[in-house]
Design a protein around this nucleic acid. Structure first.
Lengths: 229, 229
DNA sequence: CGAGCGATTGAAAAGACTCAACCACCGTGG
DNA sequence: CCACGGTGGTTGAGTCTTTTCAATCGCTCG
């Protein structure tokens, strides 16, 4: 279990602007604040694992979380890197089924939790929230369709470039901080291949590496490579 | 445009049992029946294309439809093969955005259409329908996560086996009837590779081919191959 | 019956992966 | 403060899957 951590007030949460709660008024925020619980997660600590039943949803205050499935022989496929403001686990809650993916903290995180019934009540009382969730689900489905296309049709070099572009946005300002293995599992390739291609990008002055951390230098060119130019 | 076709009454629609409307009572069915329009689609006729704005949703009465994106150089990636009872296009409707995928009839189809406002009103008046749609979206998102994992971690042979298993279920009873190119675009590989692997499966007595049609003989073994045994 | 698309085959090349060894950084304990 | 151990990063070589390109075959439709 996670040790208890300082209570972050929702109205002061840095992630809220980009979240589904961005339009909440003070009144709604204090209601939200009352039902959520804050917790601290260590690096590599699991939020939830594939197969277990959801007890509520998670809302990231700070830190990064990887969402992944495990294929044969346990190889992880990272589906998403979540960051501040992201809501996790509502798919399983709505489908009424167990989690089909796992979520683990990639670094130190502050993450709030809202119990199942509290959240469902919140959704019922806020039609806009429900509509936005529907929108969010629809948008994610579209994302996944494009993700599948990329996975199926692009070379590893293109996919790595594409991944670096999205990661640069997720880590906005900060350098990308992932193990090479996690990066490889996000791109969908072998660790060694990832390292070799990173070196190529380094030689082409598109990125710089500071040991494990990756600094993106030329995001436009990377986007071009991702598109096949 | 599609030419007008015979009106199929919703209460007599064979696809309804497996659809989101399966629990509709007679009263609700006649309401549904009043707002929908039936249309006939020729083979290769488009229901909607990437980039255009949704005007409503489609409900398949009979026939098969491919949902796909186009990658660079126009290569299709088939995301889904839809059949009787499937509802198409509601993601774009909810997200309020243009279609990010295209849908085209694979064979002769009877497909009904429900206009945007009629459908949204229907959803608002039927909380259960809304909940079921949310569930459906959540379930599809999970499917896509697994699809991505398969795409990233399995060999083409495994993916083809896996695809044949799901297609056998979609074409239940009938033989799989796709061009080799469509099949390849569903599996995410080159047409020639698909053909070669099909021959292997034929040699192993797992399938039989009747020119273009594929008859699945040993679905259990195919499922095993898909899982890596 | 001919045209044309879709299916099939062969051969060669390319992209990725695996395996194995080695290096570098980091935190620990002495 | 430094040696030690371990995890994660890097490199090389060889292999294998998959793709590509080119040519041929065979239905099916007009």
């Amino acid at each position: 279990m996670s040790k208890t951590y300082k209570h972050v007030n929702c109205s002061a949460c840095e992630g809220r602007e980009g979240s589904l709660f961005h339009w909440f008024c003070d009144n709604q925020l204090s209601g939200l604040n009352a039902i959520k619980k804050c917790a601290y997660y260590k690096k590599n600590q699991a939020l939830f694992v594939e197969g277990s039943m959801p007890r509520g949803i998670f809302c990231i205050n700070s830190g990064k979380v990887k969402i992944y499935t495990q294929g044969e022989e346990g190889k992880e496929q990272i589906i998403q890197i979540a960051s501040g403001g992201d809501l996790l686990g509502f798919r399983a809650l709505f489908s009424g089924d167990s989690y089909k993916v796992s979520a683990t903290a990639l670094e130190e995180c502050n993450i709030c939790f809202i119990g199942r019934s509290d959240f469902l009540e919140l959704v019922n009382q806020n039609p806009r929230l429900r509509d936005d969730l529907m929108k969010e689900l629809s948008a994610e489905l579209t994302d996944k369709a494009l993700f599948i296309t990329n996975m199926a049709q692009k070379s590893v070099r293109q996919r790595l470039a594409s991944s670096l572009v999205s990661l640069a946005e997720i880590y906005k300002g900060d350098m990308i901080n992932l193990t090479r293995e996690d990066l490889a599992n996000y791109v969908g390739t072998a660790t060694e291949t990832t390292i070799r291609l990173l070196k190529d990008f380094k030689d082409e002055n598109l990125i710089k590496t500071h040991t494990r951390k990756i600094e993106v230098i030329d995001i436009d060119r990377l986007a071009d490579i991702a598109s096949g130019y």
